[in-house]
Design a protein around this nucleic acid. Structure first.
Lengths: 101, 101
DNA sequence: TTTGATTAGTTACTTTTAGTAATTAAATAA
DNA sequence: TTATTTAATTACTAAAAGTAACTAATCAAA
């Protein structure tokens, strides 16, 4: 193992996107703001991990969390500009998947 | 959890690329064929996982393994067409990383 | 003929992460 | 008071990753 010339920004990007479910969560959010349960229902991810991933993405400024104090409470997640900027990468993966899988 | 409308091909692509180190291994191979130790030295990945990942990628037809019976043995890994087709996706992640991280 | 060097792994063991299911908090309606 | 709904969290188990030592193959040097 070593850490030589590897670009730290690319490494971080791969670490973020590469975390399990993160890519699919972002893909899901490309459709627009969605609440917790919507994302949970759309993907085979448990609430435990979805919560964890959304927190990470929020911390990185990729996802925004908005609470509506309705009854019952509504929490919506959406992509920030930084998150939206990932669309090209995600669409490219989608295209590759369509052509090669 | 559910498995509703999620595109299975995208899910598989995300699962492949999303596995730890896989993105960086592919990025590394965009530079051309490389032997095991070269990849291991370029990335902070251990031989154990590098070996595991390369096997998965070979099984998926993304990476090709070629053995040269020299002394000592030389094993080179390279991208197949299917693997090379991921360049767009990987470059997009690279660009995003440059702009946003 | 034994020792060492080199590459490409594998094995054994520990730590971290993920999966699963049950539980909680808050706010209200019946 | 009990039930309902959403958005989580907690406790526990299973799987994956990290680490370091070891192996196989082949030859050269001592």
């Amino acid at each position: 193992m070593n850490e030589t010339t590897l670009c730290p920004r690319l490494a971080k990007a791969m670490d973020l996107i590469g975390k399990r479910w993160t890519g699919l969560i972002l893909y899901q959010l490309l459709d627009g703001p969605q609440r917790f349960n919507e994302i949970e229902s759309a993907l085979p991810v448990s609430g435990r991990l979805l919560s964890e991933r959304l927190k990470e993405l929020e911390k990185e400024g990729i996802v925004e969390r908005k609470v509506y104090t309705e009854v019952p409470v509504r929490v919506e997640y959406s992509l920030t500009d930084k998150g939206q900027a990932l669309e090209g990468a995600i669409r490219n993966i989608e295209i590759w998947a369509t052509n090669w899988l």
